[in-house]
Computed example of a mutant assay.
Amino acid sequence: MKLTLTALLICILSFSTHASAMNDGQETNGGDPFVAEFLLVLDSTLDRLPWTLPLENGASIHREVLENAKTTVVFSSVEKLVLEGREVAAINQPLAVPPRIVVSRTAWKNLSEKQKTLLVLHELLPIVGIFDEDYKNSIALWQLLQPDSPLSFATMETAIMQCNREQLESVPEQRFKRMITPSQIESLIFRALDYECPAFIGKMKDWNINMDLCVGSISLTNWFLRSDIQSAPAALEILQTLRSQGVPTSKICAHKVNDSCEQVKKTKLPFQSELRTVMGCE
């Protein structure tokens, strides 16, 4: 029978806590199989996490911060860890020089794969100064590893290229804004125009993401009108969405005036009249 999340946390929390000073333990020297497995789980977890990692209270960090912190830590294991009269699975010492993480061999052997993943994150986060009370942050990061969580730049890009409306609609707004950087969002907007994906442009409008952008001296709208548009319905929906958000027909980029109505006149598309109507051109 699967443990509920509450039961899982009770199980893990009965084995783990944040650190106080600890002087014993076996130093990592490459011959400790428990440390080796701990590092294997940690490396695998970090490798699969996206570049931007959401934390509670709207904060976020880059994965690189955790990757760099891992290289500064001395890892070791002991047969059993007891802190304040209670058995714990691991202890972290972020203020030690160098920082230390000590693992209980007895506790580690009894943890499931999910519990081990949560534990390695829970122990590393304090090394970079991130409090992980009740596993709130480590659980948030663990959820990003699940296959139904399209919240990395790469998975969002794939969803846009396939214009998977159902998948795009399932993306939570707050997690998206915490996960994807502003520059990445701009890249995804242009990707959505490349692949003529109105579903993503619609999401950006609903979430009040600014799409009044320039590509060098070319406005976003003119850039799209100059592209090799293949689908009239998709193009019209995209342009209508941009216009409804307030993206202007005329925009100055790098001191150059971009008149989208003039650009429409230059197109050889068979639905030019529909473009003029959507763009509000006389």
Rank of each mutant, 00 (worst) to 15 (best):
A21M: 10
M22V: 12
D24L: 14
D24N: 10
G25Y: 06
G25E: 10
Q26H: 13
E27V: 11
T28V: 07
N29D: 15
G30F: 02
D32Q: 09
D32C: 07
F34G: 01
V35L: 07
A36H: 08
L39K: 10
L39T: 05
L40H: 11
L40C: 08
V41Q: 09
V41Y: 08
L42G: 01
T45R: 02
T45W: 00
D47I: 11
D47C: 03
D47M: 10
L49Q: 03
P50Q: 07
P50I: 07
W51A: 13
T52M: 12
L53E: 03
L53C: 06
L55V: 10
L55W: 05
E56R: 12
G58D: 11
G58A: 04
I61F: 08
I61C: 09
I61Y: 03
H62D: 14
E64Y: 02
E64S: 12
L66P: 03
N68T: 11
A69E: 14
T71Y: 02
T72V: 06
V73P: 04
V74R: 10
V74I: 10
F75G: 08
F75H: 08
S76V: 00
S77Q: 04
S77N: 08
V78A: 15
E79W: 01
L81W: 01
V82H: 11
V82E: 15
L83P: 00
L83S: 13
L83M: 14
E84N: 14
E84F: 12
G85T: 09
G85W: 03
R86A: 11
R86Y: 03
V88M: 01
A90V: 03
I91R: 10
N92P: 03
N92R: 07
Q93V: 01
P94I: 11
L95W: 09
L95D: 15
V97C: 06
V97E: 14
I101H: 04
V102F: 09
V102R: 03
V103G: 09
V103Q: 07
S104N: 11
R105C: 08
R105A: 14
R105H: 01
R105L: 06
T106Q: 14
T106A: 15
A107I: 05
W108A: 09
K109D: 15
K109I: 04
K109H: 13
N110M: 09
L111Y: 02
S112G: 06
K114S: 09
K114P: 00
Q115F: 00
K116R: 15
T117Y: 00
T117Q: 13
L118V: 06
L118T: 00
L121A: 02
L121R: 02
L121E: 04
H122P: 02
E123L: 04
L124N: 02
L125V: 09
L125E: 04
P126N: 10
G129C: 05
G129H: 06
I130N: 09
D132R: 03
E133N: 10
N137V: 05
N137W: 00
S138D: 05
I139Y: 10
L141K: 07
W142R: 12
